[in-house]
Each structure stands twice: as C-alpha cells, then as structure tokens.
C-alpha cells in the first residue's frame, strides 16, 4: 500500500501540471477583461495602458512558465523567508493579483481563517449529523424517523442557498434580531465572550451549508447501509449470535462507508474552495468570495492560482479516499 501511495503521489505531478495548463488555456480562451469594472468614463487608451501595466495579454508561452516559476519557486521561498526570517525571495517578482496589485498568496492567507471557521465547521457538523441519520434511517427503513428524514433532507437539498440564506436572515436577523446578518471577518476570538460573538455570527451560514451537506451525505449513507443490511453476511453474523449493535455499527457500517468516504473526500477540497453563494449571502468573504470576485473581475492570476490549489487538494484527497478504500475493504487491491 505504501509503494502504491508513493507511486500515485509521483504520478500526480504530471497530472497536476497538465491540469494547470488546461486551466490556464481555458482562462485565456474565456472572454473577459480585467478593466470591465472600470467606469465607462475612463478613456479607452487609459484602460489599455492599465492593461499593459498589469501584463494582460502576454502570450501563453511567456505567461504560463512565468506563473509556474512564481508558484513553485518564488512563493515557497517567500513562505520559507517568513517562517525562518531569511531573504531568499528578495527582489523576485511574486504572483500579483490584477484587482488589487498585491501578492496573491497574502490575500489567500488572509481569507483562509473565515473559510475554515464557516465551511470547515459546517462540514464537521454535517458529517456528525449525517452519519447517524443515515444509519438509523436505513436500519428502520420506512419508519416515521426515516420518512421525516427523507422529507427534510430532500427539501434541504432542493432549496438553494440564495433562498435559504436570505430566509434565515429575514427570520433570525430581521425579525428576531438574534444574529448579525453580516459576518465580521476582523473579529478575533480571545476569550469566552468573543467566542460567543463568533458563534453568533457563524451560526446562520453554518446552518445553511450544513443542511445541504447533511442532506447529501445522509442519503448516500442510508442507501449504502440498505444495500449491505440485506447481504448474506449480515444474516450469518446475526445467526452467529453477534449482538445487533456490533452487527450494524461494525460490520455493516464498515462495508457501507465506501460511497460515504468518496463523497466526504470530494467535499474536503470544497472546504478550501469555500461556498460561493453562502459566503456571498452572509458576507463571509472567504476563499469562495475571493474566487467569484476574481472571476467577475477577470483577475486571471488569482483565478489560476486558486483553481490550481483546489486541483492539488482534489488530487490529494481522492488519493486519500483510494487508500481508505483499501483499509475499509482489504480485498481491494491496487498494485
């Protein structure tokens, strides 16, 4: 398994390079203009000069290697410098966002806390809720609990966050006045009181996101459990006199986790990717909002970098999922 993992890791390097090239070409091809948001009152020649100052429109064979160099050489050096107070990166051009003309990685680092707080917590909450719901719904198929669960999760999944987000704001911020409708990213948690404030501002976006993720996960969990509960080995295990608890929660659950692990592994990169709509609705301004404003402003270096980091995480977590399959079901062999 270890050799397999290492081989896969090495193989993923060319894959990632290829993905980054495809993303690059795609962004080049997509219509758009970083000056589209500049008012029409600014003359066209000035816009052209501004574009040139940013380096817009460089040919692919110049811009792509430059980006690769900056991403893989300059930025790690900068990180090294920051950690060990060295100065390897001095005088080297960093990746610069077209919108703000500041280093991209600095902005990303600024955005990660709020995305982890909100999207990360929502994910954990969702997993903790979805697994028990899925297991119990399957174990008591067509019981009142299962029917209610189906109803709630399906509605939860069909209602898009642009609606559910505004709905909870209208209820909890406008009518009841319990929670703020706008997330304060400058808020620092230092003691219990600030932690409570943080909880208050997190609760609505986490609720909206967790509802969606729970719905999805619990459906897969339920379906997979149902499949396995009917298998012969369950009958055997019961016949052997194993306690029902260990039949369901050890044997059946372990065999049912493969699809769930897949869905979770696909979702973890999304934690980094942020939740575009939910972040917009609550003004969380994390990575998701960064990506969408970069796309709208046609800030190609930013979009390219964010998408590529996202791609690295996708490749990594899918590999982790594959390794987990082998642990969950030792019969799966990859060699």
């Amino acid at each position: 398994m270890l050799t397999y993992t290492i081989r896969r890791l090495i193989l993923s390097v060319p894959t990632l390079l290829f993905i980054s090239l495809v993303i690059f070409l795609l962004l080049e091809l997509a219509p758009g203009d970083p000056m589209a948001q500049v008012p029409l009152t600014v003359p066209l020649e000035v816009k052209q000069q501004m574009r040139e100052a940013l380096g817009v429109g460089q040919p692919v064979w110049v811009a792509f290697p430059k980006w690769l160099y900056q991403f893989f050489v300059v930025e790690p050096q900068v990180l090294f410098d920051v950690v060990f107070s060295t100065n390897f990166s001095e005088g080297k051009a960093r990746m610069i966002s077209w919108q703000s003309r500041s280093p991209i990685m600095d902005i990303v680092a600024e955005r990660i806390p709020q995305t982890l707080w909100v999207v990360g917590v929502a994910y954990i909450v969702a997993i903790l809720m979805a697994l028990p719901i899925g297991i119990y719904s399957a174990y008591r198929q067509y019981s009142v609990f299962d029917q209610a669960g189906t109803f709630v999760t399906m509605i939860g999944f069909s209602v898009p966050p642009f609606f559910s987000g505004v709905l909870v704001i209208v209820i909890f911020s406008v009518q009841l006045g319990w929670f703020p409708s706008i997330y304060d990213t400058t808020h620092r948690v230092v003691d219990w009181d600030t932690f409570v404030v943080q909880l208050q501002q997190m609760i609505m976006p986490v609720m909206v996101l967790a509802l969606q993720i729970t719905s999805q996960l619990s459906r897969f969990m339920r379906a997979s459990m149902l499949d396995n509960l009917g298998q012969d080995y369950v009958r055997t295990a019961r016949a052997k006199g194993l306690p029902e608890r260990s039949v369901v929660l050890v044997h059946v659950l372990r065999n049912s986790l493969i699809p769930v692990v897949t869905v979770i592994a696909l979702g973890v990169p999304a934690i980094f990717g942020g939740a575009i709509i939910t972040e917009q609705v609550f003004k969380v301004n994390g990575i998701g909002q960064l990506l969408i404003t970069a796309i709208q402003g046609n800030d190609l270096p930013m979009v390219q970098t964010l998408t590529f980091i996202f791609a690295v995480l996708i490749v990594l977590f899918n590999l982790i999922a594959d390794v987990l399959y082998g642990i969950l079901d030792p019969r799966i062999r990859y060699d």
Partner: peptide, 13 residues
C-alpha cells in the same frame, strides 16, 4: 480530477 478542478464559470463562458 481534471473536470473536478476546472473552474465552472470560465468553462461556461
């Protein structure tokens, strides 16, 4: 993995 990584909006454009 490639399709998972592609940014949706530029792809649509």
């Amino acid at each position: 993995n490639l399709f998972l990584a592609l940014p949706l909006l530029p792809l649509l454009l």
